[in-house]
Amino acid sequence: MQPEELALRAPAAALRAGDWFETLFRGHYPRIVGLLTRLTGDRFQAEEIAADAFSKLARRPLLLQSHESLTAWIYRVAINAGLDALRANARRRRSEDAAGVERLRTGGEPGALEDLLRRERCERVRAVLGVMKARDAELLLLRSGGMAYREMAQALGIPASSVGTLLARAEREFERRYRARYGDDV
């Protein structure tokens, strides 16, 4: 149950901030870790970022007491931190990939080429997500994670009726940026 749904079922006064926090944490922590893992490619880093986002929320009692848009807040903070980590990781990965190419050139293990190409495709997608607006990147990640429009609207703090429009724009923007960087090499 979402915190906002919880509020509809019980009087606001009867709910402690801890109840909201626990509901939000149990309901969204695994999903946020999943999104961040796809975004950063690093499960441990994803767990760290997600835990940090929830810790930030726990340290903001006024925000917890307001009970408003907590879901959107936690997704926004977590995805923004994930995008920051993605940009920070990019430089390190480039040097690692260069080392991988060198290993291939000097005779690598079987399957290493496929692995390198797969990683290259991942890095391209992540690089494009990293330069997009945070909300557009978040939309694409949420959608590719299998979220329904209603859930995406809740995570983004927008009306469900706007999701289709924003998603179409985000897809167009992603394709434009991808082609601008990498041409038609899909």
């Binding site: 149990r26 999943g34 893992t37 796809r38 694409l140």
Partner: peptide, 26 residues
Amino acid sequence: ADRVSGWMDVLPDAAAPTRIPAIPRR
């Protein structure tokens, strides 16, 4: 949408289900 979905699907899913840690309490 199919093309973008194909690009996004390149990103690997979390390999193992996420274990919920102890809740950081205030």
